[in-house]
Each structure stands twice: as C-alpha cells, then as structure tokens.
Simulated scan of single mutants.
Amino acid sequence: MTTPCDTLLTEVESDVRMTAAAIGFDHLAPAVSDALRRVPRHAFVAPAQRDLAYANYPLPIGSGQTISQPYIVAIMSQLLGVGAGDRVFELGTGSGYQAAVLAALGVAVYSMEILPELAERARITLQALGYDQVQVRTGDGWLGWPQAAPFDGIIVTAAAPRLPEALLDQLKPGGRLVIPLGAPGGNQELALYRKGPAGAVTGHNLLPVRFVPVTGGLGRSAPPSDKESSPP
C-alpha cells in the first residue's frame, strides 16, 4: 500500500533528478531517503495543516516562519555530507524538522532559534519524538555555538545577506557549510562552502531558492541565553 510518505519521496526524488546538474547528484543517498521516510513531518506542522504535511512544499508554522519544502531539506542534508557520530550546528531551528532529519542520520545537532516560542515548540516536539541528540537554544544563531564547536557541518535555514564569519570559524577543516544567500524578496542562491585542511574556504552557488530571511542582529546582539533545551 502506498503511503503519503512514499508519494512524497517519489516527488522528492523526481525533483532531485531534475536539478541534478545544479546540485551534483541525481538521487538521494539511502541514508537520507531513509531519514526522510522515518521522520513524521506531520508532527512538525500545525494541526490545521496536517492534511498537507506530506506535500512537497513549505508550510507556515507561525511567527512569519515556514517549515521547509522536503526536497530542500533532503538536498541540504545530503550536501552537508555528514553521518553517524558527526556534529552539526543549525542556524534557525524553526519547526525542528530539519534537525530531526539530521538526527535520523545519526548526527548530534546543536540548533539555535532566535524566536523563543518556536524554540520551545521545537524542543517539545523533538523531545516527544525521542530525538535526544538535538539540543535547542534560544539566541542569535549568527554567533554560532562556540562552546560546542568545532562542527563537522553547519546548516543555515534562512536567507543570509552574507557569509557568517563566526560560523566559518566554528567549522572543522574538511567540514561543509550549506546556506541560502541573498536578500529577502530578492534573488537567493543555495550555496555550498567547504573548509580545506589548512582552513581556506571555497564555495559556489547551486540553485535559486526562496527562504525567509535571517533575523536578529547578524552578530551584533547579546550572546545567546544559557538556557538549553535537552531547507521555494
């Protein structure tokens, strides 16, 4: 029997094939596909939206934010190139769905959300689903999470006007940063950056996307709270 999740995965794989020239692969890695299959997306959307939870497009989650399109979540997860035992910093927890997919890959996730109500809601959802390897903190993600650095991968789930230097500093040599770059309402590009063994950073744009913008002081606000909670 075909489930809504099966249909979603078929659509995501179709989108991956159509954009293969841009993203550099033509199918999802089995681990990423399995993670997408195992994470219950309906748990991360509002009850009124749950009949749309397995549609391949973003949905509103309140506070002007969205849960990303599953295709975007899948390709960003794969572009990070991380797996079991790795550590990832996420700027923008949102609903917690992206963090849950990474956790399903066996990754320890340190996620920062500037909106307290979203951070708390994501924390409760992730905890209820047993994603204990995800830690959520309320604060300005532009500053990263220095106490948990360095990271094998860093993922930014909101459009940024420029590369965040603090996050590059917290990325391990050999690590990857996946980030949408561009102005809100303007042209945005999903970009992949790699940090070489000697610390040099190289990167390139992959494909046009549309994300909500990064909010906060872009590094100029106060340090994040010490209160922790245990991708158009």
Score class of each variant (00 low, 15 high):
204 H>P: 01
79 L>M: 14
221 S>V: 02
107 V>H: 09
178 V>S: 07
81 G>H: 03
83 G>I: 04
20 A>Q: 14
208 P>I: 08
59 L>A: 06
121 R>D: 02
113 E>V: 13
174 G>F: 10
13 E>R: 05
150 P>V: 14
17 R>W: 11
59 L>H: 05
91 L>I: 05
148 A>I: 05
87 R>L: 07
145 W>F: 15
64 G>M: 07
215 T>M: 06
38 R>V: 10
96 G>Q: 04
150 P>W: 11
57 Y>E: 08
10 T>K: 13
116 P>W: 06
63 S>A: 08
13 E>Q: 12
129 L>V: 05
93 T>N: 10
84 A>G: 11
57 Y>G: 02
207 L>Q: 10
90 E>W: 05
154 I>P: 01
38 R>M: 14
189 E>D: 12
226 D>Q: 12
123 R>H: 14
182 G>M: 10
222 A>T: 12
61 I>D: 03
65 Q>S: 09
181 L>H: 00
95 S>Q: 08
161 P>C: 05
105 L>T: 07
2 T>S: 08
26 D>F: 13
128 A>D: 14
100 A>F: 03
103 A>F: 02
7 T>M: 08
45 V>F: 07
172 K>A: 12
63 S>W: 06
60 P>M: 12
148 A>P: 00
128 A>W: 01
89 F>D: 00
91 L>R: 02
22 A>P: 00
188 Q>F: 10
153 G>D: 13
182 G>A: 05
75 I>F: 01
95 S>T: 14
70 P>V: 06
99 A>D: 04
203 G>I: 12
18 M>R: 14
195 K>H: 15
115 L>F: 08
48 A>S: 09
48 A>W: 13
133 Q>R: 08
182 G>C: 06
156 V>I: 12
204 H>K: 11
45 V>W: 00
73 V>T: 15
158 A>I: 09
227 K>Y: 04
58 P>Q: 11
189 E>Q: 11
232 P>T: 15
82 V>F: 00
196 G>A: 09
206 L>V: 08
35 A>S: 13
127 Q>Y: 04
84 A>W: 02
36 L>H: 02
214 V>P: 02
77 S>N: 05
228 E>V: 13
62 G>T: 12
136 V>Y: 03
58 P>C: 15
224 P>M: 14
177 L>W: 03
6 D>Y: 14
97 Y>D: 06
222 A>Y: 12
149 A>M: 09
202 T>W: 12
143 L>W: 01
57 Y>W: 11
137 R>W: 04
149 A>V: 13
215 T>V: 10
11 E>Y: 10
95 S>N: 09
43 A>D: 08
48 A>D: 15
135 Q>E: 11
85 G>N: 13
52 L>K: 15
